[in-house]
Amino acid sequence: MTDSTESPDLQRRSGLTRLKEGTYGGLFAACAAITLLTTVAIIVTLLSDAVAFFSQVPITEFLTSTSWSPNPRGGGQTFGIVALVIGTLTVTITAAFVALPVGTLTAIYLSEYATSNARSILKPLLEILAGIPTVVYGYFALVYITPALKATLFPEMSTFNALSASLMVGIMTIPMVSSISEDAMSAVPDDLRQAGYGLGATKFEVSTGIVVPASISGIASSYILAVSRAIGETMIVVVAMGAQARMPTVGETVLGIPFINPADVLLDSGMTITVAMVQIAGGDLTGGTIPYDAMFALGLTLFVVTLVMNVLSDIIAERYREEY
């Protein structure tokens, strides 16, 4: 035992130790800073070439022109994003028709009905859906789904079409909807369920009438994330949807409203924003040309749209976390 009357030396820490501590802290901080730098680098990279692009192509033309042909054999290039947006919307909306209802029902099943055993089997299996490489999904769509649909439901379907691609995008995004929605549903306090049962509600009424409304912001946030994922999806559409930027023909009006026949967009090939980027990248990467810059303009569009959606989803999700 030391004699505590002598003043203990509490401040001494060797310079080496302090240097070591500081070095480690600094190194870790530097690594953490790389994540911030990544964001900055993405924005700067996209912006610098996008600005170059918009100095050549007016932004109004980019946003309103309906023709996309960056590398025409002869004649002028046109850079109108509208056809691409329509292609992207086609895929996104169709995929949403698959992923949102299926994902929501899955979430309800997992959170309300499944035994813990079933849950422990189903959840990892669902995760597999998100883990399959997208190029594989694209291949499935091209060589299995399309021929199957062609043989059974839609004989007039073309080899490259939006429908098969969208179905695969939908399946791929199911786990995104189901896992986040399930988290939200599991976060609903049991008191609420008990209250429902106490009033004589059936399990169905409790699930759909109490749990789902109580977790609605979580569900909404999962929808937005899934849609944002579908917008940015690349390889499935590249492989299975073809690469033709088409404007759908606006058909006869139904009740005075212009009408686009869904079969027209779904069964034929089309082009999304991501496909357009990949198509340019297949040819021209050295930089300095307008198509090269156009790629970054498209990338910027994609980045901004997905970023806004993610932030939105975060804000909504934050609300349900606060509620309980």
Binding site: A32, T35, L36, T38, T39, A41, I42, T45, L46, S48, D49, L225, S228, R229, I231, G232, E233, T234, T274, M277, V278, A281, L285, M295, F296, G299, L302, F303, T306, L307, N310, V311, D314
Partner: peptide, 24 residues
């Protein structure tokens, strides 16, 4: 800020990372 940034980076489409790699 770092945390929010990381969450958002996780949701950036992979094709955009491709552009980052190409440009940078």
């Amino acid at each position: 800020l770092l945390q929010i940034n990381i969450a958002n980076l996780a949701a950036v489409p992979s094709v955009v990372y491709g552009l980052l790699g190409l440009g940078l």
